[in-house]
């Protein structure tokens, strides 16, 4: 009597019904360029920024920080220009988040100098006594593992050669370990002496944070 006595037919029908909404709202948009537009102004992450992004993911920063500024007046006032789809073209995965226990970070790049981040990351409570952000001082005590950096950027399709990746790493190491580095004092304060000439996980994480919202500013000013 009907499909309630035919389990296989029932299952096939249930799957078909499930796939209708899935096809219209998920599969078809995957094939539409309008869902994920690209812009020549938005560049992929460097190998160091990508390592920083992976640390951001490892520590679950996305559980407390969003990365989408909504087109609402007070939100634009607080965080800056609202988010555009183009700026996420290289984000695998997206890190928009779902809860703002801490502030949105989509436009945090360039908002503070590196020194601010070194101090804040090492102890948020030293900077803001009542902050509930976990301290991340230990990130400065971990040397950055770059052994998979090239493999990561090739999986992500950034189009870097192995030499490009080495160059990016060396270049960033040179800039943050340089005696004239603007945030040298803060960096030295949080980094143990034996790692001051190396890249640490905190260096990479800050490189990533400084990239957020950076490229899209060029795109917006040219529009």
């Amino acid at each position: 009597m009907g499909i309630t006595s035919k389990p296989t037919v029932f299952a096939v029908l249930a799957a078909a019904v499930v796939l209708i909404g899935t096809t219209v709202t998920v599969f078809i948009p995957l094939l539409m360029p309008s869902t994920q537009p690209i812009s020549p102004y938005i560049k992929p992450y460097t190998a160091v920024e990508q390592e920083g992004r992976d640390i951001y993911m490892r520590e679950g920063c996305n559980n407390c920080h969003t990365q989408t500024v909504r087109p609402l007046r007070t939100e634009v006032l607080r965080y800056g220009e609202y988010s555009k789809p183009e700026e996420f073209a290289y984000d695998r995965p997206f890190l928009w988040g779902s809860r703002r226990t801490g502030p949105d970070l989509n436009r945090v790049g360039g908002k503070y100098p590196d020194s601010w981040h070194y101090k804040h990351m090492a102890s948020p409570q030293n900077m803001f006594e009542k902050s509930n952000m976990p301290p991340y001082a230990w990130l400065a005590k971990n040397p950055l593992d770059t052994s998979n950096s090239f493999k990561k950027t090739s999986v992500l399709g950034y189009g870097y050669s192995e030499r490009d990746v080495q160059q990016q790493i060396t270049q960033y190491r040179t800039s943050v370990t340089d005696d004239n580095y603007a945030s040298k004092e803060s960096r030295d304060q949080v980094t143990p002496p034996e790692l001051r000439k190396e890249l640490t996980e905190m260096d990479a994480l800050i490189a990533y944070l400084q990239k957020l919202g950076h490229d899209v500013k060029n795109m917006e000013s040219k529009k």
Partner: peptide, 21 residues
């Protein structure tokens, strides 16, 4: 990428759409 690390095949807004579906 390694035994302990991978990247999703979707990117940006599409990834968000797949993930929240």
């Amino acid at each position: 990428v390694t035994l302990f690390k991978s990247y999703t095949i979707y990117s940006g807004a599409n990834d968000a759409n797949v993930e929240w579906w």
